[in-house]
């Protein structure tokens, strides 16, 4: 890299460690971090009942499903693919979880493993069709969205299904872990921490970024990019399964319309979190912040007393603002290179 120094200006070596502050300010997650802090401060100073332990824990609990499924979606988007069927998959697997426990009377652990395994199989099918047969993932998973919702309706005959009444199962996934801290929050944190580490610290994570950044170059570098993409689809499917297991344990039932529109919330969280839909950019931390922004906005709008119709407008506007900031930072970074 050639470096040109402007006369009179102090010389800065771009390859040197940029420092924590500069790194934070230049990160793709800066926009969403700024949004999170801004919204949090607004709530703290101007909104009654916002800054209470129960309310904040409740907000974090509410983003559980977006966070867990969003983790898989982050891997996929970083790998340059997308899964539009996650809402339907989560709905179908929820129904299957409830059905296998109550109708087939399978033990809960077996049902949970079955549901997650089916998520993996679904992901593998998407992955093979996308990566091997070169059909765009948004087309494959759009078809999956319709098929899986149809299966959910077929299995239930359109009716909500009762889940298990097993108290241990409920406590494990739907109860409180410590004080008011919900067990499902702990599950989300564990999943996001594990995959955040995998994505940022392991060879597999490096391969995911390389595959999404430039698949041809990744293949030339000896990365098994096709396998990486299939694995990312499988992980997303498994996480949809895990979210379903948690949902059924928490609410005690499964509705065939569960997850209706959730794919958009998940993709919004990932993109607001700084990921690029063209692949190669994104992080689990960003997705967590993206989900948190959505959760905080939803919570604040109710606490403030905003009418339901305005909530849609405000949510969209604030998400757009966060994405614009991300875009601005990305452009600035590109110009600085």
């Amino acid at each position: 890299m050639t470096t040109m120094t402007v006369p009179g200006a102090p010389r800065v070596d771009k390859d040197a460690d940029p420092g924590v502050l500069r790194k934070a300010l230049g990160a793709h997650e800066f926009g969403v971090l700024a949004a999170t802090v801004a919204i949090f401060l607004y709530g703290t100073f101007f909104v009654n009942n916002f800054l209470t332990g129960d309310n904040l824990l409740s907000v974090v609990q509410q983003i559980t499903f977006i966070g867990i499924i969003g983790t898989g979606m982050t891997l996929l988007i970083v790998a340059g693919e997308i899964d539009l069927s996650v809402g339907s998959q989560y709905g179908f697997l929820s129904v299957l979880m409830a059905y296998s426990v109550t109708q087939w009377q399978l033990p809960i652990l077996v049902s949970a493993l079955l549901v997650m395994a089916l998520g993996v199989v679904t992901g593998a099918i998407y992955g093979v069709i996308t990566a091997v047969f070169k059909v765009p993932s948004f087309v494959v998973t759009l078809a999956g969205l319709a098929i899986l919702r149809g299966f959910a309706l077929l299995v239930t005959d359109g009716q909500p299904l009762q889940g298990s009444t097993n108290s241990a199962y409920h406590s494990l996934v739907g109860g409180n872990a410590i004080g008011s801290l919900a067990a499902q929050t702990v599950w989300m944190v564990a999943v996001m921490a594990a995959f955040g580490w995998i994505l940022s610290r392991t060879k597999f994570g490096y391969d995911v970024y390389a595959t999404g950044g430039n698949m041809k170059a990744a293949l030339n570098a000896g990365i098994r990019a096709v396998r990486v993409k299939i694995l990312c689809f499988c992980i997303t499917g498994a996480l949809c399964g895990l979210a379903s297991v948690i949902l059924v344990g928490w609410l005690g039932s499964a509705n065939p319309l569960t997850g209706n529109g959730v794919e958009l919330s998940v993709i919004a969280a990932v993109v607001v979190g700084g990921a690029s839909l063209t692949g190669g950019v994104g992080s689990v931390t960003g997705t967590l912040l993206g989900a948190l922004v959505a959760g905080l906005i939803g919570n604040l709008l109710v606490l403030i007393g905003v009418d339901g119709n305005w909530q849609q407008v405000a949510t969209g506007a604030l998400i757009l603002a966060a994405v614009l900031v991300n875009r601005f930072i990305a452009t600035r970074q590109a110009a600085m290179r």
């Binding site: 801004a38 603002a321 966060a322």
Partner: peptide, 13 residues
Amino acid sequence: LALAAGATLSACK
């Protein structure tokens, strides 16, 4: 962004 967020929420309210 902070101001925009606050302004949007306030406007909605």
